[in-house]
Write a protein that binds this DNA or RNA. Structure first.
Lengths: 202, 202
DNA sequence: GAGCAACTGAGACTGAGTGTCAATATGTCC
DNA sequence: GGACATATTGACACTCAGTCTCAGTTGCTC
């Protein structure tokens, strides 16, 4: 996963990708996404329109890629590293709690993404698509903890979906509450509340 | 809410809206969304491009509107009609179980939407946006059952999000399993499983 | 360095979405 | 019923996203 690994060709590809997505994030942070044209990104990244569309489906996916570089990989890796004794829900909660430092560090990115998402439906769209990608990736990573039953992985996707929902709402709340608040506290509160709300109906 | 109520002007507006969105659904069902141009919808609905874009933000929103006409209203109404004694989670589960007949009846629409969503990211986008609208509307309707606490409605959105996640996955599974399967069974299974997965982590 | 495959750039093209202006239809007031 | 304000509609021109083709370049292999 090193940025310098692989052949020269591969490295250049990766470099072009990150250069373009970073340019997109910069420009969007400066002007807002409406005012950023694909040509602007191309100019700053030093590539042509054709190249841009060979790397990204759309302006929005370029921006979202720039904001989320490698975050999913980190989450999946952290989940796989949890003790095998933990059940699915506990492992997922532990994963996000252990990564709350990353959240805190990337507050700027997360905040920018939230702002732009509210501003432009197309970005909202891409973010949602990525949300589903997270759900599937986490569900897959839960395989050893919840092997295929009669329902073929339904339970895995359900826990992943529920925890992601809690994480999404907790992150939103954390961003709204200002820099003073802590993400791990929000996560913990959300997880506990989720359990209480469902059990309460017992 | 009657289609014939209001002034003539209002009635015509409503009629234009439904005519266009139905035309969109028909055309998409026939050819797939990529092959349907805005001009095609305009032609079938008997309106001009300008009029179309005065009613809809995009081709996708027109289609999604046609597929979902009034479904959210029905869900919110059903939730509000649940006995006041039920807690939030129970009431939400009961709501969807009681509406499973609607699901069964609208299988064609739901299936079409799922197919097109997989086919076109922009549709996926609009559907996701509508998903968030559902989450917020249901959370609001939960107000009497979960009054504002210290966290200002966080719990309401969390239950709504969790149940919607279960409903989404259950619906998906139901559509995949063919016409023989029953939506209420899938819902019930998903709700029970959700509770078991979270409680299990005791 | 010769040949091959992958990458890049230029430019033409389709179609989505916006903005303006004029024409028509509706609601209201007299 | 006539006059005026307002809302809806259509025609048209425009910008920009995204697709496609073709030619030129760069990196890889032998």
């Amino acid at each position: 996963m090193d940025a310098d690994s692989g052949s020269l060709r591969r490295r250049k590809k990766r470099r072009t990708f990150t250069t373009a997505s970073r340019a997109a994030v910069e420009l969007v942070a400066e002007r807002g996404i409406q005012a950023v044209k694909v040509d602007d990104i191309c100019e700053r990244a030093g590539i042509s329109r054709s190249t841009f569309f060979r790397y990204f489906d759309s302006k929005e996916s370029c921006f979202v890629a720039g904001v989320n570089q490698g975050r999913l990989d980190a989450v999946v890796a952290a989940l796989k590293a949890r003790p095998a004794s933990e059940d699915a829900f506990t492992a997922l909660c532990g994963t996000f709690l252990s990564l709350s430092g990353d959240w805190r560090r990337q507050r700027g990115f997360l905040h920018l993404e939230a702002r732009i998402r509210a501003e432009d439906p197309a970005v909202q769209a891409h973010a949602s698509a990525q949300y589903l990608a997270w759900e599937n990736a986490l569900a897959d990573a839960l395989h050893p903890r919840l092997p295929d039953g009669a329902d073929g992985g339904f339970a895995r996707r359900l826990v992943a979906g529920i925890v992601l929902c809690a994480v999404r709402l907790a992150t939103e709340q954390w961003l709204k509450d200002g820099v003073g608040s802590s993400p791990e506290e929000k996560f913990a509160h959300a997880f506990a509340e989720a359990r209480a709300l469902l059990v309460g109906g017992g």
